[in-house]
């Protein structure tokens, strides 16, 4: 594949966007805004591709009567219900997301389903914590002790006597060792981001275009 065109576009756009971060010229700021607007336009058109992909996948499931093909019917039902109530129905001037049916579907189906998925996190945290806090090694034991101190410091049930200092101990763990580790990771991430961006701008890394050097 001839990658010269895309590489040139990546280089020119990348350099201009980078210059925009440091230089104060109105044309450069306008260019950055223009690029960001185009990204939004492309993203809007790309939704069509996404929906086409989703439809293709679920139509194939229905045709082949694959396991769980009934769920594909739910996908189509949900999709068309939102489209019809959102685009084609008018209730005394209330259209789109303000239409009562569309709003009802969103508030009573979409939101509770999302909340249900989110609430599962509590159970998953418990199972993950059980695995993480088993004191099988020195590191795991340290993790267990730190976690217990932070958890106990977070809840005001053991105040009084020897436990008076727990909130301070918790805060110290969060502010000193925890923050130091987080910042170390963030410094590495920052350098990694810069390195990846520069590799792409200068055409050193080309795998995102599909080809590779391997």
């Amino acid at each position: 594949m001839n990658n010269r065109g895309p590489l040139l576009i990546a280089f020119v756009c990348g350099m201009l966007m980078m210059a925009e971060s440091f230089l104060d010229y109105s044309w450069l700021n306008s260019f950055a805004e223009w690029v960001q607007k185009y990204y939004i336009i492309i993203a809007a058109f790309a939704i069509v591709l996404g929906v086409a992909s989703l439809f293709k996948l679920h139509l194939a499931k229905l045709k082949r009567k694959e396991d769980g093909w009934r769920y594909s019917l739910v996908v189509f039902f949900g999709f068309f219900a939102m489209i019809i109530t959102g685009f084609f129905m008018n209730d005394d001037g209330l259209v789109g997301t303000k239409h009562p049916w569309n709003a009802w579907l969103y508030n009573n189906v979409q939101l509770p389903l999302g909340a249900t998925m989110f609430s599962l996190l509590a159970f998953f945290i418990a199972s993950a914590a059980y695995r993480a806090f088993r004191a099988r090694s020195l590191e795991a034991t340290l993790l267990l002790v730190a976690a217990c101190l932070v958890m106990l410091g977070q809840v005001p049930i053991l105040t009084g006597g020897i436990f008076d200092n727990l909130p301070e101990i918790k805060q110290w763990i969060l502010d000193i060792p925890n923050m130091a580790s987080k910042r170390a990771i963030m410094i590495g991430v920052g350098l990694g981001m810069m390195s990846t961006a520069l590799k792409i701008i200068f055409g050193i890394e080309k795998t995102y275009l599909g080809g590779s050097e391997e």
Binding site: M1, A46, L49, G50, S53, Y208, L209, G210, G211
Partner: peptide
């Protein structure tokens, strides 16, 4: 999660 990422992924995997 994103349609543009899907298009990119398709192209990358196809090229591979």
């Amino acid at each position: 999660f994103d349609p543009i990422v899907m298009s990119l992924s398709q192209e990358i995997v196809r090229e591979s």
